[in-house]
Each structure stands twice: as structure tokens, then as C-alpha cells.
Design a binder for these strands. Sequence first.
DNA 1: GATACGAGTGAAATCGGTTACAATCTCACC
DNA 2: GGTGAGATTGTAACCGATTTCACTCGTATC
Lengths: 347, 347
Amino acid sequence: MNIKEVARLAKVSTATVSRTINGSDKVTAETAERVRRAIEALKYYPNTNARALGSGRSSLYGLIISDITNPFFPELVKSFEDVAVQFGQEVLVANTNYDPHRMEVCVSRMLQRKADGVAIMTSEMEEHLIDELSSRRIPLVFLDTGTPQEGISNIAIDYASGIDAAVVHLTSLGHTSIGFIRGPMALTSARIRYRAFIDSMKRKGLTIDDRLIEEGNHRMDGGHEAMMRLLDKSVRPTAVLTSNDMTAIGALGAMFERGLKVPDDMSIIGFDDIELNTFAKPGLTTVRVSRKEIAKVAFHALYEARDNPAARGAEFTIQPTLVERKTTGPALPKRASRQPAKRLVAR
Amino acid sequence: MNIKEVARLAKVSTATVSRTINGSDKVTAETAERVRRAIEALKYYPNTNARALGSGRSSLYGLIISDITNPFFPELVKSFEDVAVQFGQEVLVANTNYDPHRMEVCVSRMLQRKADGVAIMTSEMEEHLIDELSSRRIPLVFLDTGTPQEGISNIAIDYASGIDAAVVHLTSLGHTSIGFIRGPMALTSARIRYRAFIDSMKRKGLTIDDRLIEEGNHRMDGGHEAMMRLLDKSVRPTAVLTSNDMTAIGALGAMFERGLKVPDDMSIIGFDDIELNTFAKPGLTTVRVSRKEIAKVAFHALYEARDNPAARGAEFTIQPTLVERKTTGPALPKRASRQPAKRLVAR
DNA sequence: GATACGAGTGAAATCGGTTACAATCTCACC
DNA sequence: GGTGAGATTGTAACCGATTTCACTCGTATC
């Protein structure tokens, strides 16, 4: 069942079959119909490998992510795939597992499969690998890289405005003592968020108390431990921002374990808005970074750039939005009745 | 930068370059070294499409899942990819989005890319699509299909033993009034789990009270609503099993909203053991179905069957294991103070 | 020293499509 | 009836690898 057999059955040349498949207009309706019937009868599926080889177009778009089990990514992957399918393109997802060596494997896969474009949504990236890709004129789009580069598109996330919205939300609720659980400073994204927090606090004329700043690992356990450390201190903020949602959820768990209530005893705001939050108890107030939007923008950037070199190196910005749920509330005056035991019963 | 240029630079034929790349033993160490240097110098990456076309081997293994945002799948995908990478193979993941039409797209992708094997981990599957694949002699492995088929491998999950373990755990804690929140009966997996529950209850000589059985949708909201309905009834079980973890987590949320405590007021057991549970508050007792194990078994089944037709149609069984966390406890005598109103205030 | 053998290498066919170019056919128009 | 343009279709080169088969060259064997 290759194109020749289809051609024989339909009594046409392979060129005509190919044209029919690819929707070329240079085929009579009747001929096309005959070809289509032959395809149907033989249950013929064109060989993608041969197609890509012959045409020089793979119709394949690479998506490199860190780790699909990181809740930030599934929705991104799904949205990216959805858009791609709409355009009749395919997606090749590769996980780096945060490992530079695996990253090389991923890039090499993209190169070997002749991807028509590659979206890189991880923070760990090495210069020489980027060169490898861009020197082959493969359209690239990065998520949120700090340093823009010639000919490489970038999707920036306006952290400043996102964090600002969170801080404003808190101050409007009367909070002035605001803490922050940052991510590991080795991560670009964590550093940027932390810096945005510092800047925002300064802009609002709020004092930054180093004691109210802890570091997690962008996972639940790290958030949990960071909040524990925070709660063990002599000073306690009335609100805490976190570097991502997983951290916030971990922190929420720590509050729960200590018998403290959110938002009464402390307001907590996450970052990212992973699906999970909708159902967290209580629902997590967070700064949403729409994965659907990122995926859409990324795919379009690549798709555009495929035939149009001028479209390369475009800059996009995603505006985060504050999503108010249940973990933020008015700053309450400290109450005497802050005994864990009592609240545990009340639950 | 194709094989010819490498051959020219290394002053050998393309055949020798190909042999070197593929680790054929018929190449002198010196020649191989010269070729390798040429490859390095030209930053040559062999074209996968041409390779697949020439050799008839795609080195590609398909993994068809329902929806990557369903928390059951990310770990499965990751593990599958990890094993594949170990064997130098590639993975093509396709989402059906629970849509039969998309399923066709997925199967067609596998066919067009000439996948060396396909693991189908969704419940929705149509006969004619299976035929399409198996008639082309593509090794297949299904997860947990009810009806075994000639030449198609299957990974069964021993639900009976898993559910049994859960029921035994509960009875040993003194529970006799056990409810069940099942999944949508249209789903094979949900039906099987439900039947396993009924069977297990009967085997233990426990009575099945229809009023204690509700139906969710395998998502959080469904579990939440189902539990709400359950709590509104005049009879209330002391323990509830659920068809999957998301349902259990939703149910947990409902308990929380009603001001009820888990496990004091009710024990809850999930099914699957998705990553999330470790950090649920309280940690969810559940029946673990190891995704890592499934992925490993699935890949090996396909990899084996690639060159060895005799290996097709093998049957595997995964044993679920009970993971005791914090949502199960002794059956407590009913207390008088069970008024929702009071608890609502306390929240 | 002739013969056979095996290891290493190269020439060329092949995989299954796409596509540039050539060929043919149709039909309007003079 | 001849001509030319435009629409269809076919022929064949090509994409970049793999792989069969043939060839060359030591080297062991007699």
C-alpha cells in the first residue's frame, strides 16, 4: 500500500495521487474522486517520512519542556497540540528532565527530524545548542528568556505587572507586612519573579523585611518547609506571595498543619494558576499566566516564521492577571485567640 | 550537511558513513574515527526521515492517551519516554481528548509515521481502528481492555485485588457501611472498578446499599457533587471508596465544605495514586496503580514484539497496592453533634 | 607460489513520496 | 482548419539515508 499501488488502481500517475492528497487545485474533480476512492479501497496512508524527505517540509513543530509531570506543562502541551492540529501540523514533545544532557538529546531530535520550528519552554538552555538550531534557520521561540537574541522570537511574561497586581490587591486589603517565598535562585524564572516582587514593594513604598523572605524549590514540599520556617519566626507577615502555585499549595498545607486559617490568619497568593487551584481548599488566589495563550502565541510565531524570515525574532508579551479566589482577605488585627488547638476542633 | 558531504570530507563512501553511524562492526577503528571527526566538524545530524525510509524502521513508539491534563497520564508519559530513551528509541505522544474523531487522527498519525509499536492507554477505542493497526502488523499493547484479542498484548490491572485490599483495610478498621462513588458507566475502566467493588463486598459478606452508591465523572467536580448528594441522604456510610483519586479529592473538598472531618466522620479511599495525593490534606489513602510499572511493561512488550512476532498477544498483570495515608481511620460511633449548620459557622 | 577466505569498502538500487518540466488535451478565436 | 493559451496529467529527477552485492586486499593454508 504505497502511492504506486494507489496510482495503478486509480489509473493515474503517482504525481496525480500526490497532488490529490495535498489538495493541489490542478486536479479535476472526477480524477480526484477516483483517486480518493482508490485510497479508501486500499486503506492507504501516505508515509510521512517519505513525504518529509521529498518535500523538505516536516510539518512537525517541536516543543521542548522541562518535565511533563510539572503541573505547569500539561495544559501548555495540550493547547499547543490543539492549535497545531487545527493547522494540520504535528507536534513533537520532548522533556529535558532539567538535565542539560537530555536537553542535548532533545535538540538533536529536533534537528534530526527536521522540525519546522521549535518552541523552547524550559529555563535551562545552553548557548551552543541555540546556535545549533538557529544556524540551521529553524524558527525558534523561547518562553521568557531574559536575554533577547537576534532572529529568535521570545514570549515575555510581564511579571512586574502580575506581581504588582498581587501587591496592590493586598495593600488594598490593608496588608503592609508582606512576605515572599521565592524559588531557587538558580532558576531564571524564580529570579525574575523575586526581583519583580522587590521592585513592586519598593514602588509601593513598602518595606522589605528580609526575615519575611524564604526560599522553596517550586514544589509543594519546598513551599511547605519554607512556610514552616516562616511560622517559626518571631515576626509574621499578614500576607505571603509565592513564586509559584505549587509553593503556595505547600504553604497552605503548612498553615493547615499549624492549625492556622487562610485567609484569616494569613493571606496567600500563588503564581501561574495551575488547574489544580480551582479546587484547592480554599481556592487559591493567584496570578494567572495563561498557558493557552502562551501556546497559541508560540505556535503562531513559529508557523508564521516558517515561510517568512521577516517574522523571526518577534517579541510577544503575556499579561498575567490576578485571579481572586479564597486565600486572600482583609488584614486582620492580631488576635489573642491564636491557639492552634481551638481551630483544629472548629474544622 | 548530508551524508554525502560527510563522506566526501572523510574520504569514504556514504555506505561507510552509514555503517559508522549505526555502529556496524565492519568498519576499521581508524576509518570510524575519521568519519566521526568529519561528522563533528560538519555538525552533521542524520536525517531521521531518510533513515526511516531507507531502513523501514522508524524507531518510533506511539503512545496514545486520552488527555495529558488528566493527572493519571503525565507520569505514564514520562516513564514511557524514559524507558524509550534508554533503548535509543523515540516516542510519539498523541491525545485523543476523549474524542473518537481525534482518536482516528491519532491512529492515522501512527500509521503515517510507521510507528514500530503503539501503546493505547485510553478507554475509548473503535474496532475498525484496531484492525487498521493490527492488520499492518504493528505491535500493539492495550492498557486494561476488557476483551483480549488475538495478537494484541494487554496489560491488565488486577482491580479485584486492589479493591479487595481497600475493603479489607476498611473492615479491619471496623467499617461495615461502605459507600462507593463510581465513575461514568460509559467508561470501561469505571465499569470494571465498580464491578470489582460489588464483587469484593459480596465476597466479604457485606451488604451493598444502593443508597450509598453515587456516580461522579472521574473529575474533582463530579466527586464533589457526588459526595454532596451522599451527605444529603438520611443514611451515611462510615467509609467511601471512589473510582479514582480525582473523585476522592473532590469528595474530600465536599467533606471540608460541610465541616466534616476525614477520617473521623468518614474514611475515604481513592484509586490510582496520582502524584498529587502525597500532598493532599490530609494525605489520601488510595490504591496505587504504578504508572511507572505500566509504562515499563508496555514499552518492553512493544520492543520485544517488534522483531519477534511470537511475543505478540502477551498478557501482563499489574498488581495494585494499598497505600495507607491519612484519610482512613477506625469506624467511629455516630455522634449527636452532626449538624451541618454548626460546622458551617465554624468554618 | 597458487588458492581460498574473510574483512573492509564502495557502487548503485531502493525506500515512498514531491515537484520541475514536458506532454497532451480542450476549447475559444480568428 | 489552424493557432495559442490554459488546464490536466505524466515522466523522471530528487530528497537522504540504508543495504545488497561486488570488489579489493591482506593473510592463512596447502
